[in-house]
Computed example of a mutant assay.
Amino acid sequence: MSSPAMMLRRFCCFSTAVSPSTSSSSSAPTAKKKPLVFLGSPQVSATVLDALFNASSSPDSPFEVAAIVTQPPARRNRGKKIMPSPVAQHALNRGFSPELILTPERAGEDSFLYTLRALNPDICITAAYGNILPSKFLKIPPLGTVNIHPSLLPLYRGAAPVQRAIQDGVKETGVSLAFTVRALDAGPVIASQRWEVDDRIKDLSF
Score class of each variant (00 low, 15 high):
2 S>E: 15
3 S>V: 04
6 M>W: 11
8 L>F: 04
9 R>T: 11
9 R>H: 12
9 R>I: 12
12 C>H: 05
14 F>W: 10
18 V>Q: 14
21 S>F: 13
24 S>Q: 12
24 S>R: 06
27 S>G: 12
30 T>Q: 14
34 K>V: 08
38 F>M: 13
46 A>Q: 09
47 T>S: 11
47 T>A: 14
52 L>K: 05
53 F>T: 00
54 N>K: 14
60 D>Y: 11
69 V>E: 07
70 T>V: 06
72 P>H: 01
74 A>C: 14
77 N>D: 13
78 R>W: 10
83 M>T: 04
83 M>C: 07
84 P>M: 09
85 S>V: 01
88 A>M: 01
94 R>M: 06
98 P>D: 05
100 L>F: 08
101 I>D: 00
102 L>G: 07
104 P>I: 07
104 P>E: 01
106 R>G: 05
107 A>V: 03
112 F>S: 03
113 L>G: 09
114 Y>W: 13
121 P>I: 10
123 I>P: 05
127 A>M: 07
128 A>R: 00
128 A>F: 00
129 Y>R: 04
131 N>R: 15
132 I>C: 07
141 P>K: 00
153 L>M: 08
153 L>D: 07
153 L>Y: 03
154 P>H: 08
162 V>C: 12
171 K>G: 14
171 K>W: 09
172 E>H: 15
177 L>A: 08
179 F>K: 09
183 A>D: 15
185 D>G: 10
185 D>V: 02
186 A>K: 09
187 G>H: 12
187 G>W: 07
188 P>I: 02
193 Q>H: 05
193 Q>T: 00
195 W>D: 10
199 D>W: 04
200 R>W: 15
201 I>A: 08
206 F>M: 08
